[in-house]
């Protein structure tokens, strides 16, 4: 924990992160609109696409993880966020089930898939991705098949209202039960 500036107890440290997904879950998160300002009174958002920070911080209380684990970067981040967070939340169907990201598992080996997408695609001039792109794992996997996950928030994307209910219950703002549903 960073040292508190005030005598009041520090706010819970919330992170969001985006692995192999389409960012739709984060869009839904942004759809919380003005409640995000309310959220700021209950939690400190310490990491995520909305925060200008390069590395996943230590001592995170809860992290919303969007996307499946599909490449070596995702895998490293998954381990890192697990090690540095108290509560890991699979955020959206890609993190929970693999979803659309895992559709590539049906095509075959990653090499086969990349070739099909880049080399065989009529609009791509046969260009293959260069070495700066992280290697794909053999399969795209749900987060909990890679590291232990504490909570699951399915949906593609989870509607903003459901995200709010989940966060409210997690942060102790409102404990009323929330529905869960894939898709």
């Amino acid at each position: 924990m960073t040292s508190p500036k005030h005598a009041a107890p520090p706010l819970p440290r919330l992170a969001t992160i985006w692995l192999g997904g389409c960012s739709g879950c984060h869009m839904s998160f942004v759809d919380l609109d003005e409640w995000l300002i309310e959220l700021r009174r209950h939690a400190q958002i310490v990491y995520g696409p909305l925060v200008d920070r390069k590395e996943f911080p230590e001592d995170v209380d809860a992290v919303l993880v969007e996307g499946a684990v599909t490449n070596t970067d995702n895998l490293e981040l998954a381990h890192q966020l697990r090690a540095r967070s108290k509560v890991v939340i699979s955020f959206g169907d890609c993190a929970v089930t693999g979803n659309v990201t895992a559709l590539r598992n049906l095509v075959g080996e990653p090499g086969e898939m990349v070739y099909r997408v880049y080399a065989e695609h009529p609009d791509r001039d046969g260009q293959m991705p260069s070495e700066v792109i992280p290697d794909l794992l053999p399969q795209a996997l749900p987060l909990h098949h890679v590291v232990p996950v504490d909570l699951f928030l399915p949906g593609c994307p989870p509607p903003a209202a459901r995200i709010r209910e989940a966060l409210e219950s997690l942060l102790g703002i409102d404990d009323s039960p929330h529905g869960i549903r894939f898709g």
């Binding site: 749900p142 869960i180 549903r181 894939f182 898709g183």
Partner: peptide
Amino acid sequence: QDLAEELGVDHVRPDYQFPR
């Protein structure tokens, strides 16, 4: 989908088979 909701399946523990 309804059953998953009714039975409280918020994630799938066994490995996905990803059949072709």
